[in-house]
Simulated scan of single mutants.
Amino acid sequence: MVATSAKRKTNGDQGPTRQSIKSAQTRARLIDATIRCLVKVGFARTTTPLVAAEAGLSRGAMLHHFENSATLIQATIMELHERRLRAFRRSSETSRHDPTTMIDAYWKQLQKPAFAAFQELAMAARTHDDLAAIMKPLQIEFRERFNSEAIALYPEWHSAPDDFARAMALSQTLMEGMASALMTGALDEAMVPGLLKMLEEKIREMRPDAKRAAVGG
């Protein structure tokens, strides 16, 4: 009996079971399918049967993991937020935190389908009360997590937290607005390099070391 109990305990310590791994993989598959549907047909036409078909699953199999469209959309928004945070961390890996490197990395992220899917949800939430009820608290949670990680990743800005907040807001707002304008044809792609260069120069001017050098000079 002792040996059997010990064996069971060892098996229990081995980590996720095959079934839990399979379940997580299926959930990820459905979320990826939801993102593709949002990009292809928009929020209004992204239905659970369509997502199930896109994922290559039956609707019943999908409902086993997500009981309704609200839970599926909530999980999708959470995944999109996680991808944005991961992209931000990757763009911040260099110790020099050069604006050119960081801006280029985030701009590349904005060209991916995940950004188009997120924008589709954000715009739809403006006039869709149920979606707004899901979106708003997750947006607040994301903003708090993003700000917390940003402060930790950029110690060189600790002496100027207000300037840092403005620099991050300027970068995110400008680049995401540019990406949205490109999708709708409102921005000429030829203007993108020059606009990103202007952003880089502005961020350099706002850095605490640049301000100290200007005062010292």
Score class of each variant (00 low, 15 high):
Met1Val: 09
Ser5Trp: 10
Ser5His: 12
Thr10Leu: 11
Gly12Tyr: 10
Gln14Val: 13
Arg18Gln: 12
Ile21Val: 13
Ser23Phe: 13
Ala24Pro: 08
Ala24Met: 13
Thr26Lys: 12
Thr26Glu: 13
Ala28Pro: 03
Asp32Ala: 10
Ile35Ala: 06
Cys37Ala: 13
Cys37Gln: 14
Phe43Thr: 04
Ala44Lys: 14
Arg45Met: 15
Thr47Cys: 00
Thr48Ser: 09
Val51Gly: 05
Val51Leu: 05
Ala52Met: 04
Ala55Gly: 08
Ala55Ser: 10
Gly56Ala: 08
Ser58Val: 04
His64Trp: 08
His64Leu: 10
Phe66Asn: 02
Gln74Pro: 01
Gln74Arg: 08
Ala75Ile: 05
Met78Glu: 14
Phe88Arg: 09
Arg89Thr: 08
Arg90Cys: 09
Thr94Ile: 04
Ser95Met: 09
Thr100Asp: 10
Met102Gly: 07
Trp107Tyr: 04
Lys108Glu: 12
Gln109Ile: 01
Glu120Tyr: 00
Ala125Pro: 05
Thr127Leu: 02
Asp130Glu: 15
Asp130Asn: 05
Gln139Asn: 07
Arg143Val: 09
Glu144Gln: 12
Arg145Pro: 01
Ser148Met: 11
Ala150Asp: 09
Tyr154Val: 00
His158Phe: 06
Ser159Arg: 07
Asp163Thr: 00
Met168His: 02
Leu170Trp: 00
Ser171Cys: 10
Leu174Asp: 00
Met175Ile: 05
Leu187Met: 06
Leu187His: 01
Met191Gly: 03
Leu195Asp: 04
Leu199Ser: 02
Arg204Ser: 03
Met206Trp: 10
Lys211Arg: 11
Arg212Val: 15
